[in-house]
């Protein structure tokens, strides 16, 4: 049996310390240790994107990051982005366009979309389609998701001071 390692992570602005098994990936840690069940495990081999969270401000696959690797780092989840209001416009746009059905992929989709909005404000619809192609949604036809992201992208672009 390998020793549990003390791991301290700032999760959604709150510093938490736990002893974790090295094999525990970040999403299991968030879900099972912290009860942050908004991030989902759906493939656990890095393809579907349902586990997408932010580490030090950048999105990663939560299933391809060990909790111990996040020691000393800042992790943001859908719960954090919701509570801070950071993606309220994006959530509203998704809601208005019904850009989700079962909702299982949605937290990961929103995390990825927010990364796009932050890092590629000039993205075209094709670039949005491309950027989002690492997040599997099996319910929608993706169209409402792209529509929602595109609308927020334009709105944020217009809101930015010239």
């Amino acid at each position: 049996m390998n020793p549990m390692l003390e791991t301290t992570i700032t999760v959604n602005g709150t510093r938490v310390t736990r002893r974790v098994e090295p094999r525990t990936h970040l999403v299991d840690f968030l879900r099972e240790e912290l009860g942050l069940t908004g991030s989902h495990t759906a493939c656990e081999h890095g393809v579907c994107g349902a586990c997408t969270v932010r580490v030090d401000g950048e999105i990663v696959r939560g299933c391809l990051t060990l909790a111990v690797q996040a020691n000393g780092r800042a992790v943001d989840t859908i719960e954090g982005l919701s509570d801070s209001g950071e993606i309220r416009d994006l959530q509203a746009a998704f809601h208005e366009r019904n850009a989700l059905q079962c909702g299982f992929c949605t937290p990961g989709v929103l995390m990825t979309a927010q990364e796009l909005l932050r890092t590629r404000p000039a993205a075209t619809r094709d670039e949005i389609r491309d950027f989002m192609s690492g997040n599997l949604c099996r319910c929608t036809g993706y169209q409402s998701i792209l529509d929602a992201i595109e609308a927020v992208l334009i709105a944020r672009r217009q809101a930015r001071p010239a």
Binding site: R23, E44, G46, C63
Partner: peptide
Amino acid sequence: GQSLIPSLNMRLAAPELLVD
């Protein structure tokens, strides 16, 4: 870890120690 961790999760690899 983007190739190693999936192979760990799928138990295709089972090292004693990961050196990060």
